[in-house]
Design a protein around this nucleic acid. Structure first.
Length: 218
DNA sequence: ACCCAGGTGGCCC
DNA sequence: GGGCCACATGGG
C-alpha cells in the first residue's frame, strides 16, 4: 500500500514547488477559483486581469458593477453569464453581511461552518469552497478535483465519493499547509504533464506505482 | 471536426 | 441521492 505522502514526495522531487495560489488578496483567490471552473488557468487569469484593469477585483466595486460589464471581462473563461451573475451575487453577500472582507470572514468561524457557508453561495461547490479555505483562508482542507480523482484511480487508492477521498488524503498527510497547497498543485501539474496529450510513462515519477499500462505514445 | 479545460446548479426519477 | 443536462469560450 502506497502512502500519499510518498506520492507527494515523488511529485515534488520531479516537478518542484508550484507556488499556488498566485494572488494579491483573498478575494482574488475566490474570483480565480470561480473563473477557473471547467477552464484553463490561463483563461481564468486573463479574466482576472480584465477585472483588475476596471478596478473590479474587490467586493465593493464588483457588487456595484453591472453583470454585463463583468460578463464582458470574464467572457474568455467560458460560462461567462453564469460566472458574472455568481460573482455579483457573492460580492453582494460579502458587502452586505461581512463588511466587504472575505479575509475577515474566513477568520470568524470554524472550518466546517465556513465550508457550509461558502457552499451555500451560488457558484461555490465543494471543490471551489475547499480551494478557498486552503489557499485564501490558510485552513487545513484538501481540495479534491478531477485530476485528484484520476490520480487515485491510477494508483488504486480510490475511496468512493468526494468526502471519502478527502478524508483519505487528510488522514495520510501531515498537518502542514505547505504540503496541502503544494500537493494539490502538483497533482494538477502532473496530470497536465503526463496523463494528458501524449503520455511519456517511462519518464513519469509515478511509473513504479501507477497501475495503468505504460504508454510511450498517444 | 472533434475533445478537453483546476465545476456547479437545477431538474428528474 | 444518483444520473443527466445546460452553462460557453479558447486551444490542441
Amino acid at each position: 500500500m502506497f502512502k500519499l505522502f510518498d506520492v507527494y514526495s515523488r511529485l515534488l522531487a520531479y516537478h518542484g514547488p508550484q507556488g499556488w495560489w498566485p494572488a494579491e488578496t483573498a478575494f482574488e483567490i475566490l474570483v480565480g477559483a470561480l473563473l477557473t471552473q471547467r477552464t484553463t488557468w490561463k483563461n481564468a487569469a486573463r479574466g482576472i486581469d480584465n477585472l483588475r484593469e476596471k478596478n473590479l477585483l474587490n467586493p465593493v466595486n464588483l457588487a456595484l458593477a453591472s453583470e454585463v460589464e463583468i460578463a464582458d471581462c470574464v467572457r474568455c473563461t467560458g460560462f461567462f453569464r453564469k460566472k458574472a451573475e455568481r460573482l455579483v451575487g457573492i460580492a453582494k453577500i460579502l458587502v452586505q453581511q461581512y463588511g466587504g472582507s472575505l479575509q475577515h470572514m474566513l477568520k470568524e468561524s470554524t472550518t466546517e461552518e465556513l465550508r457550509e457557508r461558502l457552499t451555500s453561495w451560488k457558484g461555490i461547490g465543494p471543490e471551489t469552497a475547499d480551494s478557498i479555505l486552503l489557499y485564501a483562508g490558510d485552513l487545513l482542507v484538501f481540495p479534491i478535483d478531477q485530476y485528484t480523482k484520476r490520480l487515485v484511480n491510477r494508483l488504486e487508492l480510490n475511496s468512493g465519493d468526494y468526502q471519502g477521498l478527502q478524508a483519505r488524503f487528510m488522514s495520510q498527510l501531515p498537518d502542514d499547509l505547505t504540503v496541502y497547497k503544494e500537493f494539490h498543485a502538483l497533482i494538477d501539474k502532473h496530470a497536465k504533464t503526463f496523463c494528458r496529450k501524449k503520455p511519456i510513462c517511462n519518464q513519469c515519477p509515478l511509473r513504479e506505482i501507477c497501475k495503468y499500462p505504460v504508454r510511450t505514445t498517444s
